[in-house]
């Protein structure tokens, strides 16, 4: 099972980025092997529009099962839920803290976007 985090850094101690589509990087953590790697999200971050959609599409392609982030808007949520990726919102400050919350079962799956889109 793969878990993705939105972040601005390159390791587990890095800050969790509260934005989904425009987060600088995505950390993908493999729950089976306890290893991780980081993907650059620069291209989607700089998109004029549709950053959330593109980031969600990329995460789906990576075979991610769960995403832990600060906030997720309606279009990204639509893509993620259509692909069966579960979204968890957290106020954790670091990736490690968010991972701990996830493992301890303190995070609940969200059933809808928690913020409004920019176009509505």
């Amino acid at each position: 099972m793969k878990l993705a985090f939105t972040t601005s850094g390159d390791n587990l101690d890095a800050l969790l980025d509260s934005r989904f589509g425009r987060a600088p990087k995505i950390l993908i953590y493999d729950l089976n092997t306890n290893t991780f790697h980081v993907i650059d999200n620069q291209q989607n971050r700089n998109a004029v529009q549709g950053a959330g959609i593109q980031t969600a599409e990329m995460i789906v392609r990576m075979g991610v099962n769960y995403i832990v982030t600060g906030h997720c808007g309606p279009k990204a949520f639509q893509v993620l839920s259509a692909a069966g990726v579960k979204v968890f919102n957290t106020g954790a400050s670091t990736v490690a803290e968010a991972l701990e919350q996830f493992r301890a079962g303190h995070l609940a799956t969200s059933s809808s976007a928690d913020v409004e889109g920019h176009w509505t």
Binding site: V48, Q49, G50, A56, A82, A83
Partner: peptide, 23 residues
Amino acid sequence: CSRLCQYHAIACLQEKALVFPEL
């Protein structure tokens, strides 16, 4: 279609394409 669209109005998942008309 999704790769062509500069406005990200179509997302393509494993089994289907999702259209975002407002974009």
